[in-house]
Design a protein around this nucleic acid. Structure first.
Lengths: 238, 238
DNA sequence: TATTTTTACTTGTAAATACAAGTTATTTTA
DNA sequence: TAAAATAACTTGTATTTACAAGTAAAAATA
């Protein structure tokens, strides 16, 4: 298993501040303590503090302004790495439910997979699952996930109801998503997709094909996501 | 006007390396010179070099590996900030054309604009233009742009054919895009959209509403983009 | 020869220091 | 009072130094 080792100071401060922002201790528009104040507070030097703030800025949690300070720029609540923004009103995180359609099973990779695979991935087999995610009991995401079976013992027997796949991977296997790539297109709803998302055949559906990189350089998370964007938009920052 | 001032060293090196990567001097998978070599080559200290590399990594041009080095991870050719990835084969940049549908004109902002506007933006008026972007003579993007008329003299009389809006803003006004946010949805093609993109009514179209931040904190670039994703996907990295 | 160990090189983390440059509030001056 | 200058903040840039940790090739060893 992965040992905790010693976590660098700049990462510790990053996690502290990120938690303070996401938990609302610092609210949107608030000014963070100045770099020198953070130095004193947490007993670090300015380069170390600046590295934490730099990461926070890159991740979109704050904006830095020379002469002013660091201003909190909190992101909308996200679902995994995706975010939804209501077209009419803001969406809380409360009414989000996850329904499992196909429990995690170990299967061989399909020949014509949407992304090229390494030999190691092919040999390891594919953990496959299908989920439906609902907002206010309206199906929004139909999500097909594919993960190479590399160092993920007992994953097929874990509870995925109302828990993010990312949360489980992070908590149980110390796997963190580092970045990734995706292809986006608009397609007409057909068969399974239209029935799961409760749309008429031919209605437009957003289709995302994504490959996520993790802190394990051999392990990628793949997913094919179909979104009903009639009521909600996908929201993104870059 | 914006004076050139003195550009920081880390930014200079960033630009040099970025150009070397995009121009193919360093190809995908190549190892960049080590940090110490770059220090010697460009007469900088390691923290300065590291800042350049850190920015390159954040922008997705390289990946850093402890003990190994920095590996080039070049992005696909982009169109503005958007990227396209062919579903069958890679797409070069050669066959890309831009057709102006509505030349830049100064108009008042519409009341129900897709993003909230500041008073300064409203008072400044809106530079409006419509463009169609074609790949191999097939219309892919129908692009409506809105820019607040803040310090952009003579912009309505510039040449936009086959030049990116971003290129012009960067070259003529020293405006650089820092980041932004977007909403994505799938909608059915209607009227003008279906005719410009040569699609049947009701066929799925990708709709992006984006707000881009610039190095001028008062200036944002807004655009509403309709994409024909029947043949090509929108490609993104994060 | 094959394995292990060592060495050299890579990036990562961290400190202490200095000055530049932008912002804001205060103070001074007209 | 109102404008201008100043001072006291803020973040930005940059150098120097040191050691930790990961990687890969070279050398030593079995």
């Amino acid at each position: 298993m992965v040992s905790p080792k010693s976590i660098p100071q700049h990462k510790k401060l990053y996690e502290i501040l990120r938690r303070h922002i996401t938990e609302g201790i610092y609210k949107e528009g608030d000014l963070l303590p100045s770099e020198n104040e953070l130095c004193q507070l947490y007993g670090m030097t300015r380069p170390t503090v600046r590295q934490s703030l730099s990461t926070l800025a890159n991740d979109g949690y704050i904006r830095k302004h020379q002469g002013k300070g660091s201003i909190v720029h909190s992101l909308p609540k996200d679902i995994g790495i995706l975010s939804v923004a209501g077209t009419t009103s803001a969406v809380g995180n409360r009414n989000l439910k996850t329904r499992i359609i196909v429990r995690p099973v170990l299967i061989p990779w399909q020949e014509d997979f949407m992304f090229p695979l390494t030999d190691i991935e092919r040999e390891s087999g594919c953990i496959y699952m299908e989920r439906l995610r609902l907002l206010d009991d309206v199906p929004i995401f139909y999500d097909i996930s594919y993960i190479a079976n590399i160092n993920l013992p007992r994953i097929t027997s874990r509870q995925f109801e109302n828990r993010s796949l990312f949360q489980i991977l992070r908590a149980s296997y110390h796997i963190e998503v580092m970045g990734g790539e995706q292809r986006i297109k608009a397609i007409p709803a057909t068969g399974k997709i239209s029935s799961y998302l409760k749309l008429n055949e031919g209605q437009p559906v957003l289709h995302l094909e994504r490959k996520l990189e993790t802190n394990n350089p051999a392990l990628f998370l793949y997913s094919s996501i179909f979104c009903n964007t009639a009521k909600y938009s996908i929201f993104g920052r870059f």
